[in-house]
Computed example of a mutant assay.
Amino acid sequence: MNPKISDYGMTRIFGGDQTEANTNRVAGTYDYMAPEYAVDGLFSMKSDIFSFGVVLEIVSGKKNRGFSHPDHSHNLLGHAWKLWMEERSLELVDNMLDSFATSEVLRCINVGLLCVQQGLEDRPNMSSVVVMLGSESSLPQPKQPGFFTERNMPETASSSSKHGSTSVNEMSTSLLEPR
């Protein structure tokens, strides 16, 4: 194994000069699997960094899978993005944390959101993540995360259940389960 290739996780499967791959079998934890890998089996160094979005689970004390909120049907990534856009990111922090450095937590949220951006070209590489987490320099603003969609709610919980099911954008989502 080439020591220059062990960015974060799956990049270790690459050969020494390989920077991307196409796989026939998708494997891994779907919660933090890059959209281009989960959908098309395309994998690169930037796909792997998507998994580092797990830092949002660490900050919030909640899991992406099964996350629910009374005001919307987003997963944890969508919830973090919504709070970020509304400049309310500190509401993401686990209320069991009674003392923390606000600037450090906001930096972790910012970096987590940078890692889960929809476009793989927008995601940082792991060495940049290490620098961002270890410095106090300003960070780029994240773009919308991948898999930022509202999940379908059960009919009994849906306000539209009396009038039939409608969709504004005619999109549907599927929950992928690992084998």
Rank of each mutant, 00 (worst) to 15 (best):
C108D: 00
T23I: 13
T102N: 10
L139F: 03
S165T: 03
E86D: 08
T156P: 00
L56K: 06
G146L: 01
S51D: 08
Q117D: 03
S44I: 04
P140T: 06
F67K: 06
T149N: 10
G16D: 13
C108R: 00
L113W: 04
A38Q: 12
F14T: 01
E86Q: 11
R107C: 02
G66S: 11
M1R: 10
K143S: 01
I5M: 12
F148T: 03
E57M: 03
P124N: 08
A157E: 15
F148V: 05
S135R: 04
N75R: 05
S89I: 05
E20F: 11
F43Q: 07
G134L: 12
H79N: 12
R123F: 02
L120N: 00
L120F: 02
T149Y: 14
T23S: 13
M96L: 15
I109N: 01
S6Q: 10
G112E: 02
T166V: 13
S165C: 03
T19D: 08
E86T: 05
R25E: 13
M85W: 00
L77C: 07
I109H: 02
E91P: 07
N152L: 14
A80T: 01
V116Q: 04
I13V: 14
A21R: 05
L76R: 00
R151W: 13
C108T: 02
S138H: 07
V59G: 00
M126Q: 03
Y30S: 13
D48L: 04
S68I: 10
G112N: 02
A157V: 03
G28M: 07
D122Y: 00
F50Y: 15
D40P: 07
L77Q: 07
W84I: 03
S158H: 08
R12H: 10
N152F: 09
S161E: 03
L92S: 03
L175P: 03
V39Q: 15
F50P: 01
N152I: 07
S127P: 00
L76N: 07
L114H: 08
S68V: 10
Y32N: 06
K4P: 02
R179F: 11
L175C: 15
I49R: 06
P124M: 06
S167T: 10
K62A: 09
S160D: 09
G9A: 14
C108H: 02
D48H: 04
H72A: 12
V131I: 15
M33A: 14
G61E: 09
A101K: 14
Y37C: 09
G112V: 04
S165Q: 03
T149L: 15
M153I: 15
A34I: 09
D7F: 08
S6E: 06
E36A: 06
K4H: 11
R151H: 12
D71Y: 03
V130M: 11
E87T: 05
